[in-house]
Design a protein around this nucleic acid. Sequence first.
DNA 1: TTAATAGTGTCTCTTAGACAGTATTGC
DNA 2: GCAATACTGTCTAAGAGACACTATTAA
Lengths: 294, 294
Amino acid sequence: MDKEEQEFLKNYSIEDFERPSIATDIAVFSIMDGDVDNNRRLPEKQLKLLLIKRASYPCKDAWALPGGFCRKNETVQETAARELYEETNVKDAYLSLAGIFSDAGRDPRGWIVSNAFMALIDGNRCRLRAGTDAWEARWFNVLLNRIEEKRKYDGDGAKLQATYGLALTSGDIRLTAKLKEETVYKNNHEKTACKLLSSDGLAFDHAGIIINLICRLRDRAEHDFRIIFDLMPEYFTLTELQKAFEIVMDKKLLAANFRRKLADYVLETDKAVEGNAHRPAKLFKRNVEAFYRG
Amino acid sequence: MDKEEQEFLKNYSIEDFERPSIATDIAVFSIMDGDVDNNRRLPEKQLKLLLIKRASYPCKDAWALPGGFCRKNETVQETAARELYEETNVKDAYLSLAGIFSDAGRDPRGWIVSNAFMALIDGNRCRLRAGTDAWEARWFNVLLNRIEEKRKYDGDGAKLQATYGLALTSGDIRLTAKLKEETVYKNNHEKTACKLLSSDGLAFDHAGIIINLICRLRDRAEHDFRIIFDLMPEYFTLTELQKAFEIVMDKKLLAANFRRKLADYVLETDKAVEGNAHRPAKLFKRNVEAFYRG
DNA sequence: TTAATAGTGTCTCTTAGACAGTATTGC
DNA sequence: GCAATACTGTCTAAGAGACACTATTAA
């Protein structure tokens, strides 16, 4: 660094420009067992999302994604990892940036840019921070549907509208939201805009972030199915793995084909699940070599 | 909003916490013709990246990604679109967030978080902002290689190292960089870290951002080949389209198979390229309906 | 004619999907 | 035996890859 540059930096004041606060919000997904009604049947698996009840203003009493402000000398990835650990006690997890939300009016406190992360964890391994009077964390059951879809083509243009309905439930709490996504293709170029039509019980613009991140989760799983393993415990049955795939991808699979496709990615162990009134399932674990052969 | 909340917001001062500046940097990619040596042969196609020579400190005279600071009341996506327009005069283009770079020491002016965007444009449609004494923009030819690779597995763990070599050339300017990527798999969880080994002629941490974004471009093209069309003009030959695929994907394709695969995505026009000493190629355009059938 | 690119037909091999069938447990 | 889940074998259709072949232009 030459003298002139040192001089420049001495006189440079970054405070001259207005700056935002920057925060991370994390959509922590896991897969957990639903209620068991019949001891012969396997428990139903459900996609879960971790939410926290806000104890203070703004959006007091609404449910929000876990997250917090970035500190100086910390990357946003580090912020996300720290927040994830504070909330769930999980240190090693899939944790990846999935979007930025920076609309001017998104937070009444001022200019706050949110870096939205997606985390995939094994729900059983996680120990939620204990709730207090002023603080509560809960797993919500996730249900996202495409409730409407319109397609229009004309010559070199196209316009697609899709409306998504989100329902998050935990016990008798039910949070809902609707989002309209509009994709316009014009001048050989595509532009997508999202608009939150309604949001009930969710803080800030988090309903929009959540819908967005669920879609991203499905996209990513479609692109690289290996991320599904990040939702699994160390040992799992192939049926459990298949159900995880089905829940995330939102479609049914045939067991025979599924097993053939995943055969290389798992290793059989000598353990098995016992005590059920049907043939016991072998437990498998990841075959690390297969993950990194490519 | 109730009275208590209004009270809270009145007393809330966002200035109490230290905040970063936030900027966007854009990797603008296009595909352009190389030199023509033989009028029988078709011009070679090359992947290009737009860089700007910094006229002021810090990193004076080094080459940097175009970009700038986010303004209040502007989303980061809007900042990126504005910057792209200012530099290239292109309004409609593929423009998408591809990473965040927030290392504490990345900019000597202070805490500056960079939102890195990837833009794909048709280089012919673009009009670069005119250069001045203090200002210059240039298209650089892009060459990224994996120059080393190590794989190690042991039981339930794995460690992969890859070293990338980047060379950007424009006339007799040659910028180079090396980056080491290390992926560690441990406790059923993967973690990737990148370290810039060297960087010559490039400003700030932009060499790392560039290498990262080239890899992301290849990933995305692999995931959804339709983004390649964003690099093409309105009318193109199938050979041009195939070359664009080959350059981005970094592999050769067989014409017969390529044409079969893309047949649905293009429409033949009655135009053709003439004047070459070989069979004239028909010009095609996008078949918009096929893009949105899914 | 030749050098070059444009474009087609067809074979093979791999894989995704469907489905029928067998195996094993507790009750 | 029955209900439930675990797991396997095989047929078919679709797609990826390879390659040989024909077509058309300016020089």
